[in-house]
Write a protein that binds this DNA or RNA. Structure first.
Lengths: 160, 160
DNA sequence: TCCATATTGACAGCTCACTGTCATTTTGAC
DNA sequence: GTCAAAATGACAGTGAGCTGTCAATATGGA
């Protein structure tokens, strides 16, 4: 077994590969979990961002909170609106940037998704250990800060 | 600020969000790193899987090693072949399952990608600390094992 | 030997990220 | 008050993952 150059010996390479895999596994598990509710991981996450805010937010604000681009979030929000899980409210401060909020059905579906997720999250937490999870969160935050500076690039100069 | 139900208080929820973000940041950083070589993160990763093996492997085997589906890997392999970075060799044991291997140009490009990655990986490793990285790798492996059982589902019964 | 099963590649179609571009609206400098 | 700049939504296109399906090839038991 010759391995004169093994680029995957570097701890950061191995960590990156594991992060890719865990990312995929989390999305797959989430999809399976909320599929019976007519949701996907991405839609569930956006609903979470909406639910978490004490007041309705425009899409751009949701995207910033999630570390994604406004276009990605907008598409998912539109899907959720088509499903009747979120609705748009007029924004007194901005005519175009409507505010996104959960409908009654949306609140109900989100609550049911949470009820599905909590036992699994508890199980994973117990399996991994609270302290290890807390340390991993700190580590990941540090790596991401070092990697991406801020994490996402809000529209740089458009229409120059 | 009312937050009667804050589903993101759960450590596993926060960890999952951080993993999603780090995944995105790693892919973005990788894309930026190898773009000058005409590569993307995904193509680079597939090249890594090919390079890592001491002997040429069929696409299905690469996919298994990477924890992805054969279809995803096949598409990227075809792209790499069109770029002239990998080539197919006849498989003595299977007429259709050709073996993927790096071309001379592929080896050269991969070596240059490694040269770009190593300093960044070293910097990240120093920033985060070797021990923390090693512990995070163990944690992630454990979570993924608990989540996905094996990690990927090779074609379940087709043609029933 | 022969046929059912598993494996593999190929193709189509989906979701979810991304970038880039444009029109509209808001904001702020003058 | 006016006009440039920034912010926002809308739309088009791309990359990368997924599932599902079909045909071709290996494999193994009867």
């Amino acid at each position: 077994m010759k391995r004169s150059t093994d680029p995957f010996a570097h701890p950061l390479s191995r960590l990156a590969l594991e992060v890719f895999r865990l990312n995929g596994a989390l999305i797959a598990a989430g999809d399976g979990l909320v599929a019976p509710l007519g949701l996907t991981s991405a839609r569930w996450q956006v609903m979470g961002a909406v639910a978490q805010s004490p007041e309705p937010l425009p899409t751009v604000q949701l995207a910033r909170n999630m570390g994604l681009t406004r276009q990605s979030v907008q598409r998912v929000v539109d899907d959720l609106a088509a499903q009747g899980l979120v609705a748009f409210a007029a924004n007194p401060h901005h005519k175009r940037a409507k505010l996104v909020q959960l409908t009654e059905e949306g609140k109900d579906v989100f609550a049911r998704a949470l009820a599905l997720w909590t036992p699994l999250a508890d199980d994973l937490l117990a399996s991994a250990g609270e302290r290890a999870v807390a340390e991993a969160i700190v580590l990941i935050e540090r790596l991401r800060a070092r990697l991406g500076a801020d994490g996402n690039h809000p529209d740089p100069g458009s229409t120059p």
